[in-house]
Design a protein around this nucleic acid. Structure first.
Lengths: 361, 361
DNA sequence: TATTACAAGTTGTCTGCACAAGTAAAAAAA
DNA sequence: TTTTTTTACTTGTGCAGACAACTTGTAATA
């Protein structure tokens, strides 16, 4: 693997590769004895010292163990147990991540693996630091939610490094097309389209939208949203289209909500990037004295616990959350076991109707 | 260390110990070059091969690195960086845990450490499995929230094992007194007392309470609650005192809420184990047609995001959440660095007033 | 001055040998 | 038959030497 089997490779390395291959193929079963050092030396026409060099390496890698006077044996592979799978998300406590993480942890712990957790705060510098420290650990696989996925990623080299080391990784929620990785995502564009279409079919003509600008999910949802407006001939008004970045998360949505009616436009409905945003907009609308859903329809994404916690139960586009996490964990385990090379799954959006939208009469 | 420095020890082992000692004393500084193999061979009157045997071991232990043509160098000790701290909580996604976890992760990643996460679902069997697999990993420290802390713990042996291995651990939210461990907890009894006292001072005379029975936090909060009732001479009615265990989490609180007024008692206020329970009770009260806070006062614990998500903003006893997580992480890091042996911190409860309670006139 | 070639020193690979220490089974002795 | 000893094997430790591959500083060259 490391090099070709040509003669440029040192003899002890060739022996190592040979033995590894034999183990992989099952010719040398776990627990069974390897040929003695002298036999290997004779067979490969190399000195015993060179054989020992190879065996020392294999011993350090944990593939074999030796007992003085008895012989050398293949060690019992721990069969996936005790492996570490790393998870890097943008956030840990916010939004729907806790549930996704729970789903992942569920499957991993059931498989006897442990979960190494890190978060980036959606900051590429922190993502670099995370990957840096994860690469120091002996991780068997990585599930990662890309950071500011709509921007150019500066940390591609870490992913290349993972590939070099043969550590599989799986991207969640979004992915960098340059890497052509395994991924599990939502069909966010379709989701955006469905959201807008639903409001249009309720009779809304002036529909606002606010989306996250630095995540691919946000861009996709907006694209689908605009696509639906265009398809149904609904006018797209710049004033009604909001965009924010991570840093503005706690200020922009409320302000946008307060400013919605200031500019003469009189929107009757709105699509929000997610429930978190929708609640902030809801707060703004309440402060403006506008009642939801009587005077204004609100539709958002992710169907999080927030959607049912408020007095107005939000209609929202479902996110599989824990199920997606479990699926991601199963996939990465399969990838670690070499069962599958590259998985790709796209969840179809589904609209959960509650009481935040109303048909215009 | 492994043996005495007598002659029974192999030569290469003696050289290893010698070099380790030199590094420990700082004679060989990190990054600095070691004597060449030939020099060491000459100095110790051993063959170069034997020197290499020692150096190979040290290289595998990560203490030195070698560069062909340049020499052998002491590697830079990662000084606390790259260490793994494990965290075992009852839940990951529910309740306030995400925020606690976030706080912990914040501090750890800033210190260059990584977080190994596992959850028990408040099940002692799963706790055993967690600890089992964690002990296989090279963890430097452990933060753990005890499982069903009000019950007798069957997993004490794992903690003894940790102690034997010199791996520090810190208990969160509750602790097993048998272990006399380091801990960070809330003063739950005082919190329960404060909650009841507040409602009593508002003029309530019939106060219900529902608490978790299998966690020490629940028991303590109930104890404080009852203590206050007794002190102020408020009658304690068994029908108004609810207790549930983990398995009943999603059924009991709602049923208890619905049944509150069936038995002739007419409580005017209630203390709930936490916000999550309070919301379920709130749902039950709504279905019973009872308005909060007009007809009924509700007070709960933890000041979680749920407390402000509902239409009735819950008054709640504050939980430090992320701050507590950060503190826990700082403590465990200190313990790993041997700066402190055993830390103990008890957070004082604080009542956050919102709009779920009203004074009786 | 800048470049190239060389020399000295480093670790990497490899051979061959010898004996020690430990295991397991066969052989010998009780 | 049971016990002890021997023997033949295993891996562990150690020596001496050789050349390859690589780095670095110095000397020779352009």
């Amino acid at each position: 693997m490391e090099q070709e089997n040509n003669n440029t490779m040192p003899k002890y390395s060739r022996l190592k590769e040979y033995l590894k291959e034999q183990m992989k193929r099952g010719v040398i079963a776990p627990g069974s004895q390897l040929p003695s050092e002298n036999m290997l030396a004779e067979e490969f026409k190399i000195s015993r010292h060179t054989v020992r060099q190879a065996l020392n390496d294999l011993e350090n890698e944990g593939l074999i163990f030796r007992e003085q006077g008895r012989g050398t044996f293949r060690s019992y592979p721990t069969s996936g147990k005790g492996k570490i799978v790393a998870l890097v998300t943008t956030y840990i406590s916010e939004y729907i991540f806790p549930e996704v993480i729970r789903g992942i942890e569920e499957v991993l712990s059931a498989a006897g693996c442990t979960l190494l957790l890190a978060s980036t705060g959606n900051d590429q510098k922190k993502e670099a630091a995370c990957l840096e420290s994860l690469l120091q650990q002996k991780i068997s696989g990585l599930i990662i939610e890309p950071t500011q996925s709509a921007r150019k990623n500066v940390n591609l080299k870490y992913y290349r490094d993972l590939e070099k080391r043969g550590i599989p990784y799986l991207m969640l929620h979004a992915y960098y097309p340059e890497l052509d990785p395994a991924y599990i995502i939502m069909d966010d564009e379709k989701g955006g389209y469905m959201a807008a279409e639903y409001l249009i079919q309720l009779g809304h003509k002036k529909i606002a939208g606010v989306f996250k600008a630095d995540d691919r999910q946000g861009v996709k949802r907006r694209d689908g949203f605009l696509k639906a407006l265009k398809k149904y001939g609904v006018k797209i008004t710049p004033d009604l289209l909001g965009a924010y970045e991570t840093a503005q998360l706690y200020s922009y949505p409320y302000q946008f909500g307060r400013a919605l009616f200031a500019k003469g436009e009189q929107p009757t409905a709105m699509v929000c990037y997610n429930d978190q945003i929708a609640l902030m907009v809801l707060e703004a609308l309440r402060d403006e004295g506008i009642k939801v859903p009587e005077e204004f329809s609100l539709l958002s994404f992710d169907d999080s616990s927030l959607a049912v916690a408020s007095e107005v139960k939000l209609s929202s586009i479902k996110h599989p959350k824990a199920a997606m996490g479990r699926q991601a964990a199963r996939f990465i385990l399969d990838m670690i076991e070499d069962k599958v090379i590259k998985v790709r799954q796209v969840y179809q959006p589904e609209l959960i109707l509650r009481s935040s939208c109303r048909a215009l009469v």
